Simulated scan of single mutants.
Amino acid sequence: MDIGHLTERLMGMDDRTWARHANPLSGWSRVAILPLLALTLWLRLRLGPWIWAALTLLVVWTWLNPRLFPEPAALTSWMSRGVLGERVWLARKKTPIPAHHARAAMILNILAGIGFVPLALGLWRYDPGLVLAGLALTMGGKLWFLDRMVWLHTDMTRPDG
């Protein structure tokens, strides 16, 4: 099982939850989670034991987020199509996807994963340059991956596709 499927299982994503998560408000508000996590960890000494409350709120928000918003009226926004493409990508073992999309998604996930190294090191050392570089790599890779998922969704739902 890969990290995407593990995350989907831990999040308890079913058809209804995915439909609600396709709301652009759900997708865009989730973009703030990693920077908020980094900020929380950056402030760990100031927060003291309250860090656990902040971390708990972030975990709860991460789980609740795809359930809080209504299904979107239309699925035409970039974020909606990206979320739907992510679902297509996660189902790639049952419904194969074009090799060029699989390759690009793997590279972008590796790029996003590499960003965790400077992010974690920067948070450990209180080095703002490393934290910002890590956030840029991780979030840039994730958003680029999401853009690729828009393309994947378009290709997989095209009548001739």
Rank of each mutant, 00 (worst) to 15 (best):
L64M: 13
R44P: 02
L135S: 04
A120G: 12
D15K: 15
L45I: 10
L90K: 12
S77T: 15
T40W: 06
L43S: 09
T56F: 08
L132C: 09
L111G: 11
L55D: 08
P35S: 12
P72R: 11
L68D: 12
I33K: 13
R148P: 06
G115V: 02
L75H: 07
W124F: 13
D155K: 00
R44C: 05
N65A: 01
R20L: 08
P24V: 13
I33W: 15
E86N: 11
L84I: 01
S80K: 09
H5W: 03
I97L: 00
T56S: 15
L25K: 14
L64A: 15
L58Y: 07
L130I: 02
S26M: 14
S29N: 03
F116H: 10
P128T: 05
W61N: 12
L47G: 03
P49V: 12
P128D: 03
L37T: 12
L143M: 10
I51C: 01
H153E: 08
T56I: 07
W42Q: 08
L6E: 01
I33Q: 14
M156Y: 02
E8F: 05
T56Y: 05
G12M: 12
G122K: 05
A74M: 05
L43I: 01
E8Y: 07
R9E: 01
L43H: 06
R44S: 15
M139L: 14
E71T: 11
M11K: 02
D2C: 13
H5G: 11
G113P: 05
M156S: 07
H153Q: 11
G161K: 11
D15C: 00
L108T: 00
L90D: 14
H101P: 06
L111F: 09
R87T: 03
G85E: 14
P128A: 09
W63Y: 14
L58Q: 05
D160S: 14
P96H: 06
L34F: 04
L64C: 11
L64F: 10
S29F: 00
S29D: 00
G48P: 04
W89T: 01
E8A: 13
R16N: 12
L123Q: 08
M1C: 07
K142H: 09
T17Y: 09
W18Y: 15
R158L: 11
T154H: 12
L111Y: 01
G82P: 13
I3G: 07
A38Y: 07
